[in-house]
Each structure stands twice: as structure tokens, then as C-alpha cells.
């Protein structure tokens, strides 16, 4: 009896040792896999930069720094410049933010402070669903719904009101085609509103209730609490959320391609047609030969877009990281 238990004890010890060995081997393998996957993410980012840089090298070598300042895009003479798309990209994104930020702020304010509790979830979900709609749908909606409204009602009205004013008049002049920089900015604004609003709502919710209650306690109105307590407390994150929206707006492709008018010219009017880096790449790519200078110019444009988006998103991440206070 005693002998038997000793034997089984030894066998158990042996099994435990082998189990421990396999489990430590399993641990090593699993940890290595996890670490490798993490490194893979870094490799992907590096590879994107390198692949775009190699692809764009031919164009960057041919045109030098002039690539950034030339407004030429002539496939026949093989002369390409990035100025117009860069201008269009930044212009539409900034205009989109000007339209989107007040609306997104209003939505976030409504959802956190004003809405009755039973409305918060359905309205919040509806706004978030706006972010889930594919960008091609925004393109079609913009082209078939917004463009006619812009050309028939909005643009003529704006031209009549502001078109003849000195100084700012030229920004609101030109034929009301419906397409153009302003329309693209409007569609982009609708697309980035949910991202900015959701971020703002989430950071507004992080304000400790006791701060707000103290302010309400001394007689502040809802708006005064928002202005003097919530916004100062969350300032950095709010800017981070806006930068996140900017990053989204910069690289949006399909929606912009439908409505911007696709002309390689720097628009002097908000109604003028233009293009963005993403839209020119999407449109010109099918017409460029492998190994051609044009394809290289498009890849160089992609690299420029990546650099701009990376900077904007990096700032956004920096401001949104937990623990940042204004």
C-alpha cells in the first residue's frame, strides 16, 4: 500500500515536471508570438512608408523639391506637381472642420448634459451609425442629393448675398455647378461629425461629477458649467478629438471624388472645382502604366498624404492619451 503510493507519487512528480516543462514552453511560444505580432504592426507602418517612398522616388528625383510647389499636372508632357492636390486636401479638410466642430460640439453637449436619459442611447447610437455608413454611400448621397441642392438653392443664395462684397466677394463667386471645394467640405463634415462628437461625448463624461455639482450648487447654468468647468477640464482631449476628425477628413477618398469636380486648378472661389491627394490618386491611377513617371508621381502624392495624416494623427493621439490635462 505504502509502496504503491510512493510509486504513484513519483510518477505524479514526473508528470508535473513534464507538464511544467511543456507549459513553460507553451508560455515561451505564446509570448514570442504575441511579441512578434506587435513588432509586425511596427513593420507594417515602416513598410508602408518605404514602399511609398520607393515607388515615389522616380518622381521625387525627377522634379526635386519643385514637386511640392508646382501646380502642373500634365500627363502628355509628363510634368507633375503636388501643389494643387495638397492645397485641395488641406482646404477641404479645414473647411469641413469649420462646419463639423460646432455641430459635433452641440451634439456632444446635448448627449452629455441636456438629453433626457431615455434619449441618450438611441440618439448616441444613431450618430455613431453615421460613422458606419461606407464612404462610397456618402459619395453617391453627396452627388445625387447635396450637389443639386447646392447648385439650385445654396450657392445662388450665397452668391447673391456675398458675391458683390469687396475683399470676400471673390471667395463666393463663380458659376453654381453644385460641385466643388465647399460641397466636398460639407460632405466631409457630415462624415467626421460622428467621430468628433463621439470623442467629445466620451471625454465630457470623464469630468468628475463633484466638479459639476459644485458649479451647479453655486447657481451656474448648464452652459456656464460647460464653459467654465467641462471645457477647461477636457480642453486637450477636445482638441485631440478635433485632430482625429481632421485626420479622417484628410484621407477620405470616395466621397470627395464624387463631389469635388476633379480639376487640377487652385480654386479661388469656394464653389470652384479642385481635387485632393486621395481623389487624384483614385481617379488617375487606372490610367497610369506600371513603371511610368505618372504612377511614381501618384505614389509620391500618397507618401505626402501619409506624412500629413501621420503628423495630424500623432498629435491627436498625444492629446487624447489618458491622463493629459489642459
Amino acid at each position: 500500500m505504502g509502496r504503491g503510493s510512493q510509486v504513484s507519487g513519483a510518477a505524479k512528480a514526473e508528470t508535473t515536471a513534464s507538464t511544467r516543462w511543456t507549459s513553460s514552453l507553451g508560455d515561451t511560444i505564446f509570448a514570442a508570438l504575441a511579441r512578434l505580432s506587435g513588432i509586425l504592426v511596427l513593420v507594417i507602418l515602416g513598410a508602408i512608408i518605404v514602399a511609398l517612398a520607393i515607388g515615389g522616388a522616380q518622381a521625387l528625383r525627377t522634379f526635386g523639391p519643385g514637386f511640392l510647389t508646382s501646380d502642373d499636372w500634365d500627363p502628355v508632357r509628363e510634368s507633375f506637381g503636388a501643389l494643387v492636390p495638397i492645397f485641395g486636401t488641406i482646404m477641404t479638410a479645414i473647411l469641413a472642420l469649420l462646419l463639423a466642430v460646432p455641430l459635433a460640439f452641440g451634439i456632444a453637449f446635448y448627449l452629455t448634459e441636456l438629453a433626457p436619459a431615455w434619449l441618450r442611447r438611441p440618439v448616441g447610437t444613431a450618430i455613431e451609425l453615421l460613422a458606419a455608413v461606407p464612404s462610397i454611400i456618402y459619395g453617391m448621397w453627396g452627388f445625387f442629393v447635396i450637389v443639386p441642392i447646392m447648385s439650385q438653392y445654396v450657392q445662388p443664395a450665397i452668391i447673391d448675398t456675398f458675391g458683390d462684397l469687396p475683399v470676400i466677394g471673390p471667395f463666393f463667386s463663380g458659376p453654381p455647378f453644385g460641385t466643388g471645394i465647399l460641397t466636398a467640405a460639407l460632405v466631409l463634415a457630415v462624415m467626421v461629425i460622428p467621430f468628433i462628437a463621439a470623442t467629445m461625448r466620451d471625454v465630457f463624461d470623464t469630468v468628475p461629477a463633484v466638479y459639476k455639482e459644485s458649479a451647479y450648487g453655486v447657481g451656474c447654468t448648464t452652459w456656464e458649467v460647460m464653459r467654465s468647468i467641462v471645457i477647461p477640464y477636457t480642453r486637450a482631449s477636445v482638441v485631440g478629438g478635433i485632430m482625429l476628425g481632421l485626420g479622417r477628413a484628410l484621407g477620405e477618398t470616395m466621397a470627395v471624388t464624387f463631389v469635388i469636380g476633379n480639376t487640377n486648378r487652385i480654386a479661388t472661389s469656394l464653389f470652384g472645382p479642385g481635387n485632393t491627394i486621395a481623389s487624384i490618386v483614385a481617379l488617375e491611377f487606372p490610367e497610369s502604366q506600371t513603371g511610368s513617371l505618372k504612377l511614381s508621381a501618384l505614389l509620391a502624392l500618397g507618401l505626402i498624404l501619409f506624412v500629413i495624416a501621420f503628423i495630424v494623427l500623432a498629435i491627436s493621439r498625444f492629446l487624447l492619451r489618458p491622463g493629459v490635462k489642459a
Binding site: 507602418l45 477618398t253 501618384l298
Partner: peptide
């Protein structure tokens, strides 16, 4: 960053 990066660049 990759989460918000322009998807067209992934295509390129």
C-alpha cells in the same frame, strides 16, 4: 495611427 490612417494608402 493605422486605425485612422487613410485607407487609400493601404491600397497603394
Amino acid at each position: 495611427i493605422l486605425l485612422s490612417a487613410p485607407s487609400i494608402l493601404v491600397g497603394l
